[in-house]
Design a protein around this nucleic acid. Structure first.
Length: 276
DNA sequence: TTCCAGGTGCATA
DNA sequence: TATGCACATGGA
């Protein structure tokens, strides 16, 4: 995919490997808005607006370098889709979600966001994270940044319950006392398995949340987060199985280094047209 | 009213 | 190591 980087703008040429609706609505990010004629995306303390043009898309932002990495623009998704299309089960999902790209989002934001996501629905996750930004973030013009860890250390468990986190309030209160942004960055040096083990030691982080952080933050394509939708998919298209660890092992065995990409096409397809 | 949502923690055997 | 239950909340 061709694109051009300017000071305040990224121009995307072509629409085959980049679709804002697919990228933002496939459940890997919760801080975005469909504004009708454009999308708005928030990541950390930054914002971008995406407009469709005749030849592709334009991403308007103060930090085009950040969003070049965020949207993983250097990776060739045409090639990934070609490789994965060999699997019969992925043909329709890839056709359906052709414009998906796996984001490289902020690590701390992913940690907090996916702890909130556990046993929760996407609408409510968005609501809770929006309140978190408004209450603890910094005002940046017309939006609020995602709060930094230091700011989250200043509130008690009750605060997280008040913004709607429910029983996950305790996890959030604990996890900001276990970890900081610097430590997360350092963990990038670890192997996926070692990193996964570290993440699972954190409060509110189990196998599924760890895999989401690995995929959408650390850019590890060799993980396959198994949630309720993937379990449904597996039971429909593979075998009757409710042990999520077994499902995970079988799917990572099948898709290897491309597990995370396969997972996103399948997840998006199941959520949008699970009845077909 | 009950079920479900991008599950995890903890007790028990 | 494996299984089962409790856990907030709001929409369908």
């Amino acid at each position: 995919m061709k694109y051009l980087l300017a000071q305040n703008k990224i121009s995307i040429f072509g629409k085959e490997d980049f679709c804002p609706a697919h990228i933002l609505e496939c459940g890997q990010i919760f801080s975005y808005k469909n504004c009708g004629d454009h999308f708005e995306v928030l990541s950390k303390d930054k914002k971008a607006k995406i407009f469709e043009t005749e030849s592709g898309f334009e991403i308007l932002t103060d930090d085009s370098k950040y969003f070049e990495n965020f949207f993983d623009l250097k990776t060739n998704y045409g090639e990934i889709k070609r490789k994965l299309s060999k699997f019969e089960i992925l043909k329709k999902p890839i056709e359906f979600g052709y414009g998906i790209r796996i984001l490289k989002n902020d690590l701390f934001e992913m940690l907090i966001s996916f702890i909130v996501s556990a046993n929760n629905n996407i609408k409510r996750i968005q609501l809770i994270l929006g309140r978190l930004r408004e209450r603890l973030g910094e005002k940046k013009g017309d939006f609020y940044s995602f709060p930094i860890r230091e700011r989250m250390l200043t509130v008690d468990e009750k605060f997280f319950a008040e913004i709607g986190a429910g029983y996950r309030a305790k996890y959030l209160f604990n996890v900001v006392r276990q970890i900081d942004e610097d430590r997360l960055q350092e963990w990038q040096a670890l192997s996926t398995e070692a990193l996964r083990k570290k993440l699972i030691t954190l409060s509110g982080v189990g196998p599924k949340v760890a895999d989401c952080i690995l995929l959408f933050g650390f850019g590890r394509g060799d993980v396959f987060p198994v949630d309720t939708w993937i379990e449904k998919m597996y039971n429909k298209f593979y075998l009757p199985e409710h042990n999520r660890e077994k499902i995970r092992r079988n799917l990572t065995d099948q898709f290897g280094l491309y597990s995370g990409y396969a997972q996103q096409y399948l997840f998006y397809y199941m959520r949008c047209c699970g009845d077909n």
